[in-house]
Design a binder for these strands. Structure first.
Lengths: 115, 115
DNA sequence: ACAATAGGTAGGAAAAATCCTACCGGTCAA
DNA sequence: TTGACCGGTAGGATTTTTCCTACCTATTGT
């Protein structure tokens, strides 16, 4: 169980959530669905910039849009975000396990050298 | 406990591990310390590009360099990687909890409407 | 039906990241 | 000591990302 982290994650999904602005957008969308305009009002960027970020999130499958009247309401795709959360957790624990394993080996070597 | 994910993470650290190449580099360095050259031999980029990626990882505190002879051996900073792992895990569980909470609310509303 | 207005889209400019070529410095062998 | 070579560094070109300006579309109210 060497668990190479690289093979544990979806690159597109990962880099989608790698951007701070997009993470904040996910936070806002989790609090309640909204349009590019409503999001931009709560962020330090124009709604056009927000629209492109939404496009990135959409291509990664993290958000979906449902037309409502003349607007497009974006909402988080629960299943995909859950998938992302699972990946984050597994990478985190993989690293943790790896570190723990290395530490154990190091301690074993030291103990061996002491004898 | 609304847990806004944005305030849970260190942006520099996060975007450092947001890049696929850098994640693979961390994998390789966890398997054993190495120089820019040895890493580049196991990656599809030149050692100069690797050097810049190492610089990014270094600024984020994820790796450290120790001069050894005429080379510079890079190794993972255990404490910082553990910190990163913890952040990943907490974001993952924050999202998971948020999703679960939303689902519960939705179900409650439905149940209410049925009555 | 028509004007007014809010929202989305297209295109490109500016900024940043990534990558490579060229160069410098130190180490090892003779 | 000196030449060859391995590794790192500096600088800049290229690609990608991010962001904004300008424009078009659709809905709403009169």
């Amino acid at each position: 169980m060497t668990s190479p982290v690289a093979e544990l994650v979806d690159d597109d999904l990962w880099s989608a959530i790698g951007d701070p602005t997009r993470r904040r957008m996910l936070d806002l969308l989790l609090a309640g669905a909204g349009t590019a305009t409503t999001l931009s009002q709560q962020l330090p960027v124009t709604r056009q910039a927000v629209a492109k970020h939404l496009d990135v999130l959409n291509r990664a499958g993290l958000v979906q849009a449902t037309p409502a009247g003349r607007e497009k309401r974006y909402h988080v795709d629960d299943a995909q975000l859950a998938r992302a959360a699972a990946q984050l957790a597994s990478v985190g624990s993989a690293w943790d396990a790896r570190l723990r394993r290395i530490k154990t080996i190091a301690e074993t070597i030291q103990r061996t050298q002491h004898s």
